[in-house]
Write a protein that binds this DNA or RNA. Structure first.
Lengths: 213, 213
DNA sequence: ATTGTAAATAACCCATCGGTTAGTTACGGT
DNA sequence: ACCGTAACTAACCGATGGGTTATTTACAAT
């Protein structure tokens, strides 16, 4: 537990480093077990401290989780919204760009498991759900549907309900997150998520196009 | 707990009715809380019995859940596979039919929450995940990818990786399930899931079509 | 070197819950 | 009427895990 440093002391005082280390450990444990099943003892052990120490820096398990959400996704979405507003080219290119970015996040980031955890335990922690929806879901859907609206206005996309299309954009990306965080572990040959996402963008953009088919 | 019948007896012997009533109660509790957080006491109470009685009919919590999966989805998928094999018309029509059927199930059935529960708690109950993947996921994906392969062979669809397209088919349906079982509860104006699914089928079929765009 | 203090530990408390079992009761057979 | 039995209950057990607290210890200031 405390065997990583030299031989002189059982532990060190590291007030500054602890919170981030605990957050990282918590992310890993929440990702592996979900919110309810993650043990504070395990989070502490992974962070190289004991449970009592975690409670020096965070009030409760729920506080720990919220801190995690706050410091991760919200900001990233707002950054992309700024990108989108400044974009000049074709809407299909803009959409491709944004979906590739979110797709990359979904395929590679550790943080991508957070939506899964939230939806999974929505029933037991409604406050967590409300928080996440306001912070992430509504912002994300609004970004995507504004791109779709732009595309329709410029005659690049067919006339479809932007709210539906926005959800069609992210559904496969959410699927990718779920696949990665559950089935992927038991696959001998890993499933090609990157190819999946490219196919998604390809099929979606063709499906949105105005040319009759 | 046992106050529903008349005044004469504290309880009745109803060996035949119990299992189904317990399964229904379990579905409701699993749907509301998830697998781990659902309490056997609550399931029993909802079924109008005590916990001991549940263990007369089911070996364990996990056995209860598995029974639920078995009696619901597995059979339905096999039925659709038979439908698909006998179908004579255009692949796009076949795919539309199948997706509408699954979509209807996703929008309306109580059982539709099962995939959500499984994926949510995959990390803690790998055996459950393995079971569900073999019983539902692989069969479902194989059904869909065979339709796609058929469509490509007949020149109705573009040449795309059927495994990717199969997942694209269900991703929005899974999304619908998740939306319904988490966010829907807090929406004042309910989101139009049926329109969403129709848009999905529309966009997907156009996106798969062979005509350049 | 000594000491004050706050960072960190380790042992503890207690509510919860899956599963078990000893006892109770409905009810068909005689 | 009265068993015999199996359906059912109710009380129990043991493990688990969130949160607390008494104690120990690193280390900066003097």
């Amino acid at each position: 537990m405390q065997g990583t440093q030299g031989l002189e002391t059982r532990w060190r005082r590291r007030k500054n480093a602890r919170p981030q280390e605990i957050l990282d450990a918590a992310l890993a444990e929440f990702a592996a077990r979900g919110f309810a099943a993650a043990r504070m003892d395990d989070i502490a052990a992974r962070a190289g401290v004991t449970k009592g120490t975690v409670y020096l820096y965070f009030q409760s398990k729920e506080d720990l989780f919220k801190s995690l959400v706050r410091e991760s996704i919200g900001a990233a979405i707002e950054a992309r919204m700024a990108d989108a507003r400044n974009f000049e080219g074709r809407s299909s290119e803009l959409l491709r760009l944004v979906l590739r970015a979110i797709g990359f996040f979904a395929r590679t980031s550790d943080r991508a498991v957070l939506p899964k955890i939230v939806m999974a335990e929505a029933g037991n922690f409604p406050e967590l759900l409300r928080f996440y929806r306001a912070e992430v879901v509504d912002k994300g859907l609004s970004l995507l549907s504004s791109i779709v609206t732009r595309g329709i206005a410029r005659g690049e996309f067919r006339k479809l309900e932007p709210q539906h299309v926005a959800r069609l954009c992210i559904a496969p990306l959410l699927f990718a997150v779920f696949w990665r965080s559950s089935f992927a572990a038991q696959d001998a040959v890993p499933y090609d998520l990157e190819g999946f996402i490219e196919t998604h963008i390809d099929v979606l953009l063709k499906g949105l196009g105005p040319h009759e088919g």
